[in-house]
C-alpha cells in the first residue's frame, strides 16, 4: 500500500508539469492583458505608461521565457505576486481558503446528514409517493437558480423578518465582541450561504445513495439476510448500508478539490470573500500569477483527491487490493 501511494505520488509530477504548461499557455494566449484593467480606459493614461507597466510585469518577454521564469519560482514554492495589488499570491489565496473551506465543509456534512438518509429511505420505499416526492424535492434544490433563492431568502429572512444578517461574514462591531459572541456572529452570517449551498448539493448525494441502495437491496445476500429472519432494520442498516456507502466514499474523495473551489455566484451574492470570487476577479483582470496559483493548487488537490478516493476505497472494501 505504502509503495502504491509512493508510486502514485511520483507519477503525479509529470502530470502536474503538463497541466501547468497547458494552463499557462491557455491563459496567456486568451485575449486581453492585465494592463487593460489597471488603466481602465483613462484618457490620462498614455500609451507609453501602459507599455511601461506591461514591461514592469515582464509581459514583453516571449511566452516560453515567462513560463520558465514562473517555473523557476514555483520550484521554490514561490507563486509570485499579484499584478493587481502586488501582494504575494500565496497570501491572497491563504486568506481566502478558510472561509470557503469552512462553508463547503459544513455544507458537505449537512448534505451527508440529510442526503444519505433521504437516499436510503427513498430506496427502501422505491417507487412510492414518498420516493417521488423526495426526488422532486431534491431536484427543486438542484434546479433552482442560486441567485434567485439567495435573494428571496435575504429579502425574507434578512430584510422583512430581520432575524439574520443580509450579507457579509462579520458584523461591523466584530472586533469588540467576546469569543463566544464572535462565533455566534459568524454562524449567524453563515446560515443562509450554507443552507443555499447545501440545498443545491442535496440532489447529487441523495440520488447516488438511492441508486446504490436500490441495487444492493436486490442482491442475493440481502435476500439471505431477510430469509435468516433478521429484522428489516438490521438488514438495511447493517448489511445493505455498508455496501451501498462504498461509492459515496469515492465521491467524497473526488469532492476534495471542490472544497476550496468556492462559487462565484453565491460568494458574490452574500459578499463573502472566498476563493470563487478571488478566482473570478483574477480572471477578469487577467491577474496571471493568481490564476496560476489557484489552478495549480486546484490541480494538486484534484490529483490528491483521486488518490485519496482510491486509497480509502481499498481501505473500506476488503475486496479491493491496490498494487
Amino acid at each position: 500500500m505504502i509503495k502504491y501511494i509512493f508510486r502514485r505520488l511520483i507519477s503525479m509530477v509529470p502530470l502536474l508539469f503538463g497541466i501547468t504548461i497547458i494552463t499557462f499557455t491557455v491563459i496567456h494566449i486568451a485575449p486581453g492583458k492585465p494592463t487593460d484593467m489597471e488603466t481602465q480606459f483613462n484618457p490620462k493614461v498614455s500609451l507609453e505608461a501602459r507599455d511601461r507597466i506591461a514591461k514592469l510585469y515582464g509581459l514583453d518577454k516571449p511566452l516560453h521565457v515567462q513560463y520558465a521564469d514562473w517555473l523557476r519560482r514555483m520550484a521554490r514554492f514561490d507563486f509570485g505576486v499579484s499584478f493587481v495589488d502586488s501582494r504575494p499570491v500565496m497570501k491572497k489565496i491563504s486568506e481566502r481558503i478558510p472561509v470557503t473551506l469552512g462553508i463547503n465543509f459544513v455544507s458537505i456534512i449537512l448534505i451527508l446528514l440529510i442526503g444519505v438518509p433521504i437516499g436510503i429511505s427513498s430506496a427502501v420505499r422505491e417507487n412510492t409517493f414518498y420516493d417521488r416526492a423526495m426526488t422532486v424535492f431534491v431536484f427543486i434544490g438542484f434546479a433552482m437558480p442560486t441567485i434567485w433563492l439567495s435573494l428571496i431568502l435575504m429579502d425574507l429572512v434578512g430584510v422583512r423578518w430581520g432575524i439574520l444578517p443580509v450579507s457579509g461574514l462579520k458584523s461591523l462591531e466584530f472586533e469588540r465582541l467576546g469569543l463566544l459572541e464572535k462565533i455566534m456572529d459568524v454562524s449567524r452570517h453563515l446560515v443562509l450561504p450554507v443552507f443555499v449551498s447545501a440545498f443545491a448539493g442535496l440532489a447529487g448525494i441523495s440520488r447516488y445513495m438511492r441508486t446504490n441502495m436500490v441495487q444492493v437491496l436486490r442482491q442475493n445476500y440481502i435476500r439471505t439476510a431477510r430469509a435468516k429472519g433478521l429484522s428489516e432494520r438490521e438488514v438495511i442498516y447493517k448489511h445493505a448500508l455498508k455496501n451501498a456507502l462504498l461509492p459515496i466514499v469515492t465521491i467524497l474523495g473526488l469532492s476534495v478539490p471542490g472544497l476550496i473551489g468556492g462559487s462565484v455566484i453565491f460568494e458574490s451574492i452574500f459578499s463573502i470573500p472566498g476563493m470563487g470570487r478571488l478566482f473570478y476577479e483574477s480572471v477578469m483582470s487577467r491577474d496571471y500569477p493568481v490564476i496560476m496559483g489557484v489552478l495549480v493548487i486546484g490541480a494538486v488537490l484534484t490529483l490528491l483527491g483521486n488518490l485519496l478516493a482510491d486509497v480509502s476505497y481499498a481501505a473500506v472494501d476488503p475486496r479491493i487490493k491496490l498494487e
Binding site: 441567485i147 435573494l151 429579502d155 434578512g158 430584510v159 430581520g162 450579507s167 458574490s268 451574492i269
Partner: peptide
C-alpha cells in the same frame, strides 16, 4: 465591499 448590486440594495433596505 458588496460585489452584487441586488445584495447592495437589500443591505440598504436593511
Amino acid at each position: 465591499v458588496i460585489p452584487d448590486q441586488a445584495t447592495l440594495f437589500l443591505e440598504l433596505r436593511a
